[in-house]
């Protein structure tokens, strides 16, 4: 079966699951009643275009119980949050998706750089985020334990929004201080953090010098120049750098090994999630290869169905590669970054 046939079959299965009264969730069942029956209309992934764009406000305004598929009834759910700098954050319920996603990701990791049995350190947003459980599961899945240093990105965004840069830097130092202590006194081989925190850590200690062999990073824009800087100077060309693109709603898109131009291309974990790069003025249209467009995400798991969500990012549509037989997204950056100032903070 080709990857496209696999995706089409998976799409039909997921639609059947979410829109059948025996297995679906109240939200989508009600939606089908008020609109049309996707079980009849959706025969392949391309048909997903018949759905309107998923509105992420629904994840804030509609109770979490509405999103529980009947197939999961009776199992307490995890609540994972996203956003929430002000007001009620958006929430996604989940059970095992994060484990599947990160086990898939684990299969892509280089065992020399991320040795089996090696301990991990996560420096970044923990709290109510999927990432916290996911990284620990990844470490455990690979036979290691995970240490944590928390960073609250909502507080950082508030500080930056108020132009309290000094406070933001002090908070960052506070986070880095804690991470440095763990690196110095515990046997850590693998690291997950954000690019900015990675830079700050390396200003304090040599990361390879303290045992780090691999680092996977995510959460914000990484220009080729920034990636090169992280590889050559921050990780001293000694530890492997693995950029990732992901969020609570998708899971984790992997990058292919970096080349000399340090341009990062991510490939969604198909068929569980699909990324398209669309024309922002006509989102039915996928942009041509090597052109920028807005990133559109469709999540297709038995826990969560989310069609055509427009991410707040733009990216270059890249061609399939040897490892991934579907489109990639390259040089991701905040949507409209050329027109407006976007607060990214340390996240």
């Amino acid at each position: 079966m080709t990857s496209q046939e696999n995706l089409d079959q998976h799409t039909r299965d997921i639609i059947q699951h979410h829109f059948s009264p025996e297995t679906g969730c109240p939200f989508w069942l009600k939606w089908a009643e008020e609109h049309w029956d996707p079980r009849k209309e959706i025969t392949c992934f391309e048909d997903i275009a018949k759905f309107p764009h998923f509105q992420d406000e629904w994840l804030r305004d509609i109770t979490n119980e509405e999103w529980v598929p009947k197939a999961f009834a009776g199992r307490p759910f995890n609540v994972f949050e996203t956003g929430g700098t002000t007001g009620l954050p958006k929430q996604r319920v989940g059970w095992d998706d994060y484990k599947h996603d990160y086990e898939m990701f684990s299969d892509q990791l280089d065992d020399d750089a991320f040795p089996k049995g090696g301990n991990w350190l996560m420096v970044g947003p923990t709290g109510p985020r999927r990432l916290r459980l996911a990284v620990e599961h990844l470490a455990n899945h690979r036979g290691g334990s995970c240490y944590f240093v928390d960073l609250d990105p909502r507080w950082v965004k508030k500080l930056i929004g108020r132009k309290e840069y000094d406070q933001a830097e002090r908070y960052q130092r506070h986070v880095v201080d804690q991470a440095v202590e763990i690196l110095k006194h515990r046997d850590i081989k693998c690291l997950f953090t954000t690019p900015r925190l990675l830079e700050s850590l390396s200003e304090r200690v040599s990361l390879p010098g303290n045992g780090i062999r691999g680092c996977f990073c995510g959460g914000t824009t990484m220009t080729p120049q920034m990636v090169r800087f992280l590889v050559e100077e921050v990780l001293e060309n000694k530890a492997l750098f693995v950029p990732t693109y992901g969020n609570t709603l998708m899971g984790l898109a992997c990058s292919v090994p970096l080349t000399d131009d340090y341009s990062v291309t991510y490939y969604a974990p198909q068929p569980r999630a699909v990324l398209r790069v669309v024309d922002p003025d006509n989102t039915q249209r996928t942009v041509d290869y090597d052109n920028y467009g807005r990133v559109e995400l469709t999540t297709l798991t038995k826990e969560f169905f989310m069609p055509r969500f427009l991410e707040r990012d733009e990216a270059i549509r890249r061609k399939p590669c040897d490892r991934y037989d579907w489109d990639g997204v390259g040089d991701v950056r905040p949507f409209g970054v050329m027109e407006k100032k976007v607060i990214e903070g340390v996240y």
């Binding site: 830079e199 120049q225 800087f229 921050v234």
Partner: peptide, 9 residues
């Protein structure tokens, strides 16, 4: 163009 991390370093 210099990235900010490079300048800080």
């Amino acid at each position: 163009m210099a990235n900010s991390g490079l300048v800080k370093r």
